[in-house]
């Protein structure tokens, strides 16, 4: 879409955050924390970087997006709605019986979702398959995969990291939403996955670290990885879980928490004033 206007992209990130709230609603469990932490990156991908359109969903040249941390799908749903893949009213039906928006992304249900994720650790492998298929067809598209930092405990991620390096998949970009919290608490205390950047580098990836809420840093790095040839790229995005909602920021219970009516209104107000 290639609109590098940062204010415009920040407004889109705001729309995504409001969409996340809409999808969670009042007194319902919803993955607020990890959706909010990824919202700025998702906005930059859908409204700046990726070649995609709801009018050409099957375009073989489109860029692909995979939310490997599938529980944060609300950010993707909000972005897809904002792009016009489906009516924004669908957000309020998220996770209801018969809804097109499932608890975790499913391509058969939701226009614009490229593959199924939810069982953690599989998205990067699927993305690698898409990258290898694209190369075989002589396509220039890129595959962007957002992983969680807690997700990096899954062994399959490192199988994929090894394979992507072996296959020199420079059309594959892994973005780590490094919000430092997993479901049960701080990663450092629960299950420390170590120095993420050093690990990716050791596996032969070109690695970058950014502030995952600074729109200029995000778009700059997304452009920079285009210049990298012969190795896959990993962007470690330092983020805050629950970003934009003060009472949820860095609070583990909002990994999959409920909002009271009062909290919902407060969150909406805070995001609108971001």
């Amino acid at each position: 879409m290639q609109n590098r206007d940062l204010v415009y992209l920040q407004e889109k990130a705001k729309a995504i955050r409001l969409g996340i709230l809409e999808a969670i609603g009042v007194n319902n469990k919803g993955h607020l924390g990890g959706s909010m932490s990824a919202a700025d990156i998702v906005a930059a991908l859908y409204f700046y970087k990726m070649n995609h359109s709801p009018n050409r969903r099957q375009d073989p040249d489109r860029d692909r997006f995979i939310f490997s941390k599938g529980h944060s799908a609300l950010a993707q749903y909000a972005a897809l709605a904002e792009c016009g893949y489906f009516d924004k009213k669908e957000l309020a039906n998220t996770k209801k019986l018969g809804a097109i928006l499932q608890g975790h992304p499913e391509r058969d249900y939701t226009p614009g979702v490229e593959c199924n994720t939810g069982s953690l650790g599989q998205g990067l492998s699927i993305g690698l398959g898409m990258a290898l298929g694209g190369r075989l067809d002589g396509k220039n598209y890129k595959v962007y995969v957002i992983l969680g930092d807690g997700e990096l405990a899954e062994g399959q991620v490192w199988e994929a990291v090894t394979a992507a390096s072996f296959y020199k998949a420079d059309n594959l970009v892994a973005i780590i939403d490094h919000n430092k919290l997993q479901a049960t608490g701080p990663i450092k205390k629960c299950f420390d996955t170590g120095n993420i950047g050093a690990k990716f580098s050791a596996f032969g990836w070109k690695t970058f670290e950014i502030d995952g809420h600074d729109m200029k840093s995000i778009v700059d790095i997304l452009d920079e990885v285009d210049e990298v040839k012969g190795v896959p790229c990993a962007i470690i995005a330092h983020t805050v879980k629950g970003k934009g909602v003060s009472f949820a920021e860095g609070v583990p219970s909002f990994h999959n928490g409920e909002l009271t009516a009062e909290q919902f209104e407060q969150a909406k107000l805070q995001i609108s004033n971001m």
Binding site: P60, E114, C115, G121, Q122, S125, I126, G127, L128, G129, M130, A131, L132, G133, G134, L136, D137, G155, Q156, E159, A160, T162, A163
Partner: peptide
């Protein structure tokens, strides 16, 4: 495990 998920990704490119 990676092989099977990579196969899924390949199938999604036709």
């Amino acid at each position: 495990q990676n092989m099977v998920s990579v196969a899924a990704g390949l199938s999604l490119t036709g």
